Simulated scan of single mutants.
Amino acid sequence: EYKVPQALGSGYGMSWEPVIDGDFLPTNPVTKDSFAAAGKDVPLLIGTNRTEWTGFPLIVNMAQSQSDNINTWSDAEIDKRLYEAYGDKTDAVVRAFLKAYPNKTKADALYIDTLIRLPILKIMEHKVAQGGAPVYAYLFSWDSPVMNGIYMSYHTAEIPFVFHNIDKMEARIGDGRDARTLSDRMSDAWIHFARYGTPGTPDLPRWEPYTHQSGATMIFDTTIREGHHHDRELLQLLAPDYKLFE
């Protein structure tokens, strides 16, 4: 539909990614069952956003969504939509969601990303299994307040915070004090990682490496905290058949 030219060949696709050419990039960095040997001794900083793609229907239909979203629905409408989404698992999903994200509301449980979150977790697990350089995991769950909150923590929302240029994205992020503080904290962490291979800074909680046992993940929100397998129960409810090592 969008007719994005493929990197190789004459067809179209929807993929922007490095090309495995056997020279500059000799192999895929992450294979089906392992992490590439060339990256064994390179630290990895990796993560996802809480809502990622799940809120895009709201953004695409912004004219209606500004007055028709989780911030305008009644409790009855929210309960109805939750049941339509999760059926008999609704109560369990809401409980697990609020355990994972205690600063959110049950309505926020309507927008939970697994499409990107699960493969990223698989990459973390493969990297850890190599026994090489550490993995530092993050999850960005700060929800934009603009346009009556319809943006939430959309795909790529963390990028202006990392590069400390949220002023270029006021239409989507706003100019609130909490956003500016979060940008300071995140950009400092990424700079520290680039310089020293660790993202921990004095202004953050202690940032432990991710391991299979700890599941240590820095959760970036208005309040920054470190979680440990914070959403494991939630993901198991939503994707019970997903295998991290397959």
Score class of each variant (00 low, 15 high):
1 E>K: 11
8 L>K: 13
14 M>V: 08
21 D>E: 12
31 T>H: 05
34 S>Y: 05
36 A>V: 05
47 G>A: 12
49 N>D: 06
50 R>E: 14
51 T>A: 11
56 F>D: 07
57 P>E: 05
65 S>I: 06
65 S>V: 11
70 I>R: 04
72 T>P: 00
74 S>I: 07
75 D>R: 04
76 A>K: 09
78 I>L: 13
79 D>N: 10
85 A>Y: 05
97 F>E: 08
98 L>F: 14
99 K>F: 02
100 A>Y: 06
104 K>D: 13
108 D>T: 03
113 D>F: 07
116 I>H: 06
117 R>K: 11
118 L>D: 10
124 M>G: 12
129 A>N: 15
130 Q>T: 11
133 A>V: 10
134 P>N: 06
138 Y>A: 13
151 Y>K: 00
152 M>W: 02
153 S>I: 12
165 N>T: 10
167 D>M: 05
169 M>W: 02
172 R>D: 00
180 R>V: 03
184 D>Y: 07
184 D>P: 00
190 W>H: 14
191 I>K: 11
192 H>E: 15
196 Y>G: 03
204 L>D: 14
210 Y>K: 12
210 Y>A: 11
212 H>S: 15
215 G>L: 13
219 I>R: 09
220 F>A: 04
222 T>P: 01
222 T>E: 13
223 T>W: 01
224 I>S: 07
224 I>V: 15
225 R>G: 03
228 H>P: 01
230 H>W: 02
231 D>W: 12
234 L>D: 03
234 L>A: 05
236 Q>C: 06
239 A>M: 12
239 A>H: 05
239 A>I: 08
242 Y>T: 07
243 K>V: 05
243 K>N: 13
